[in-house]
Write a protein that binds this DNA or RNA. Sequence first.
DNA 1: ATGCCGCACCACGTGCGA
Length: 293
Amino acid sequence: MFHRSFDKDMNQDSHTKPPPRPDCRRTDDVCVSTWNINSINAHMPALSEYLRQNSPDILMLQEIKTETDGFPFLELAAAGYNAAIAGQKSYNGVAILAKEKIEVVRDKLPDAPDGGDQARFIESFCPALRSRFISVYVPNGQPPANDPESSDRLEYKLAWMDALAAYAAKLANQDTPFVIGGDFNVIEYDGDVYDPAEFKNSAFTVSSVRERFRAFYYTGLTDALRRFAPTGAYSYWDYRGGAFEKNNGILLDHLFLSPVWADRLVSAVVDDGFRGVPKSSDHAPVSCRLSSL
DNA sequence: ATGCCGCACCACGTGCGA
């Protein structure tokens, strides 16, 4: 009787779809990540391992700290990745890694201060994913140690963020879906830092910076991580003082989705295991899954 | 108040980062 019944059930189900697999197993999803790598050459082993384990379709990188000449194109190609880069010697430098072919749309933020001399922005288009992907590294804004009263760097940061908000507003009026990922160097809420008092009135928390951060994403963008990460999720931990072990972290890295992608957001997470490995960046990757267009 | 750590480089000291 059991077998008879079983066969009958099978026949009844033969024209229905199989049960959905868990989200993490859906191979048609698009995985998009961002990571402040703090020198791509110093942290290539960790990057290779991240690509092998997580296999993101797109990875936005910041602080690659090299020009094109020193960029590890060959190793990345061996790992199955194309790269678009806006490089700079020693400091800054951004890139976008992609499994599929990508085209550089621009390698400077329009109307950035100093004409965008600092390599903090790169915009790509991926025909296979029918989307733009933009990697940004917002200026730090803190004064240098030898001139703690100066405001030049904060002013540069504010001007840069004004230009970013203006550009996001332009993108919002275009049809192409996009993701803007990067290190925004903003502590949006006091809950995004282990000790708000220590960062009070810093270039990460002052209202002028928070206001510009919101002006940027209030153009209609969705912060992927906010949908899923709890308060107290961090993406940066200082190298000093055992900050990672104490979880003395800060949330600085974000993935912002245009509306079409926001409707397809499946999950988002900080891959904080990659902050714990030896010779790691001081930032962890942030990644999200999107159901494909 | 300072260094705490780790990166790059006109490198054995300095600038930068958050």
